[in-house]
């Protein structure tokens, strides 16, 4: 197969779920009108949510979710051995996601709180790249299907995948939204990587940074701005840790 003089490769892909809500997998099945074209670019050989086929001859492994149990580690290492390319799909896989909130508590107290009986074996939440090497990260809670389509196309054509470097504010202003910070509220759009088309703000919610930091983060300034608006440092840090995706921005603070 060829596209305008460029060889086109139909890739064998597998989708695996770890600790997550499986919402990112559902996203893959969204944007129905493009599904036939999407599926003509990849051959899905392993995807529990849609098929009973379970082949191991995949080239790309998409990993959804974070690691929160010991047995997941071996499974992940096995996938790494089989796949040429490992992709972290979604915020949980890329950063730990909402699951990582549990790392703020002791395992014991947390298990006691949630489970009365049949207490499971569990370990602190880790992102995929803490266990195995990851070739590509596609954050988002959930991932953007449009972005995923673009990435699949780039992979099929062997083209460089360009990540947006700018923050969500650009998309937000282009959608003519009124700035949450001007409303006196907390928003992390200014330090979060764009690509979601500011979907949360369009829907009336501030940005909590599920897509991770943009390429130019000025945390000290944003923190001062939020404190000036009367938001407590405690609240700022709590919101900042919602997805475990923005932790690195506060590293320089001390």
């Amino acid at each position: 197969m060829e596209f305008s003089g460029i060889p086109l490769k139909k890739l064998r892909a597998a989708f695996f779920d770890f600790t997550s809500c499986e919402g990112c997998q559902l996203q893959i099945l969204n944007h129905e009108k493009n599904l036939p074209d999407f599926l003509s670019l990849i051959e899905i050989v392993n995807f529990r949510e849609i098929s009973s086929d379970k082949r191991d001859d995949y080239e790309i492994a998409f990993i959804e979710g974070a690691v929160s149990r010991k047995d997941q580690i071996d499974r992940l290492k096995d996938i790494r051995k089989k796949a040429k390319l490992v992709v972290s799909l979604g915020t949980c896989a890329c950063y730990g996601g909402v699951n990582a909130i549990k790392n703020n508590f002791s395992i014991e107290s947390m298990v006691d709180e949630v489970y009365k009986e049949n207490k499971p074996e569990t370990i602190p939440v880790q992102k995929i790249s803490e266990i195995i090497s990851v070739d590509l990260e596609i954050p988002g809670c959930p991932v953007s299907k449009i972005e995923l389509e673009y990435i699949i196309l780039c992979l099929a054509l062997g083209s460089v995948i360009e990540k947006k470097k700018y923050p969500v504010c650009i998309e937000c202003k282009q959608n003519m939204n009124h700035c949450f910070i001007d409303k006196g509220s907390l928003c992390f759009g200014a330090i979060t990587r764009a690509g979601c088309d500011s979907i949360c703000v369009n829907g009336g919610l501030p940005c909590y940074g599920c897509r991770g930091p943009s390429a130019s983060v000025n945390w000290m300034s944003l923190k001062n701005i939020l404190i000036d608006k009367g938001i407590t440092e405690e609240e700022i840090l709590e919101k900042l840790s919602l997805f475990n995706s923005l932790n690195e921005v506060i590293k320089d603070e001390n």
Binding site: P167, C169, K173, G189, A190, I191, N218, M220, S221
Partner: peptide, 13 residues
């Protein structure tokens, strides 16, 4: 520049 978040909001509006 220390205050600027490099968010581009100014240019958008």
């Amino acid at each position: 520049g220390d205050k600027c978040l490099s968010c581009g909001s100014c240019a958008m509006v």
